Amino acid sequence: MTQPHPPNSILYVGTYSVRASKGIYVFAFDPQSGTVQLQQTVSHGKSPSFLAIHPAGQYLYAVNEEDDQGPDHSGSVDAYIIDPQTGQLTFLNQQLTHGQAPCHISVDRRGKLAFVSNYGSGSLTVLPILENGSLGEASQLIRHTGQGPNPERQDAPHVHSAVVSMDNRLLYVSDLGTDKVYIYQIDEQQGKISVCPTTPYLHVSAGSGPRMIAVHPEDEWVYSLKEISSTVATFRRDCQTDTVELVQDDIPFLSETYSGERSGGDIHLDARGQYLYVTNRGNNTLAIFSLSNEGKLTQCNLQYTGGDEPRNFLVDEASQYVLIGHQKSDTITVFRLDSSSSEMKATGDQLSVPSPVCLLMHRWP
């Protein structure tokens, strides 16, 4: 029997389990037209929100954010096999995170370890990835301590994300509750992480709430999106010593006259390290910065995203499209990107997906 020709690109969408969401959505993406077609829904009622794809492209991992599982009432993370013909998902196994409200997952660039950020309990879970792509039991649980000046948002640590450096040596962990970005060294041989001795952490401005990280392709520059203040901080890394320093802080991506909600959502760099993109959920915008040779940021564009509460987005340079997920309006809007000028134009295409939280594009060679 002839196997069906695989789609060129697959869009995976993680969601919160609200408003009749079916869990994880799998779409075929046409890079020529920017249109999508639903291929599969993976039924799940525990808010499979944030996703990560194994570097080999054979497995997908999803955190389940509802923390009522196991004896310690924690969240969990699922592993799925990606069908090489269709991109559809088949459940492989599940492990507990031993932390509350896991909201982010990443995988090291060798595909040996998964890092889960537990927002509710302010902890980071390290899980080994086995040869068949399944997840082993947690090998480390690192708990942060401290708090910030905002009593409503920073009464305790809140680990929001963990992002791997391009050379796979460092892990940048954003803690919204303590205004710190912790830096860990990755030991591939031991399958563990340890505090970076040259720079254990960086402290950003009080009350700003670091949320997500974007790493420059050359590893020298690191950008921190700060949720509470809707600003960006710039770090510079010495790749010889792994010393990291704060070189710019509180770079705004809202106008000085803006008085509404400040709620930074997501941050990404283009593959060449020329532009930085950030979303603000308060006024439904995506700000675009150009980067100088010294890594400095200059805002060059501000784009209305076409929906309510733009949480996560992706920049697919291979097809020159930007897709933006809106948590409140239950939509994903599609934009055509002119990478040479940083201009974006809405195509008019819009997906209906309940509470989209994470968008990932997977492409076969």
Rank of each mutant, 00 (worst) to 15 (best):
G146D: 03
T199P: 08
G282C: 09
F289H: 02
G120W: 04
N93K: 02
H268W: 08
S121T: 15
E218S: 15
P200N: 09
S205A: 15
V173E: 07
S355V: 02
V222N: 06
K180W: 02
L323R: 01
I183D: 05
R363K: 14
I267T: 10
P354K: 01
D108R: 06
G282Q: 07
K192L: 14
R109Y: 05
T231H: 00
H104W: 13
D250A: 14
P7R: 05
G348Y: 10
L135R: 12
K112M: 13
L286F: 02
H160A: 09
A20Q: 15
F335Q: 13
I288G: 01
N312T: 10
G260Y: 07
L302Q: 15
G70L: 08
T41A: 13
F115Y: 15
T97M: 08
I251S: 04
R169L: 12
D67S: 15
S174P: 03
G177E: 07
T90F: 00
E261N: 13
Y201M: 12
P200M: 09
S21Q: 10
V107Q: 08
Q299V: 01
W221L: 12
K296A: 11
F91Y: 10
P55N: 06
Y59P: 01
V173N: 05
V18Q: 15
T333K: 03
Q320I: 04
V63R: 03
V116W: 04
G70V: 09
T178W: 05
V278Q: 07
A62M: 05
V334K: 03
F253M: 05
Q147V: 00
P210M: 09
G177V: 12
M344A: 06
N168L: 05
G14L: 10
N150D: 15
L176Q: 08
V357I: 14
T97Y: 03
V322T: 09
V181K: 03
I332T: 03
V173Q: 07
P71Q: 11
G148H: 06
A271I: 13
V204M: 04
I82Q: 06
D242E: 12
Q37F: 03
V195F: 02
Q154T: 12
A138I: 02
S340L: 14
G70T: 11
T86Y: 04
V36H: 14
Y172N: 11
V77M: 15
A156Q: 15
D338A: 11
T2M: 10
L276M: 04
G325H: 01
N93A: 02
Q320A: 15
L11C: 09
S161W: 04
E152S: 13
P149V: 13
P200R: 06
Y12F: 14
S224M: 13
S290L: 00
G306Q: 04
E294Q: 14
D30W: 02
P151D: 01
T347F: 10
V232T: 07
P365D: 12
V163R: 00
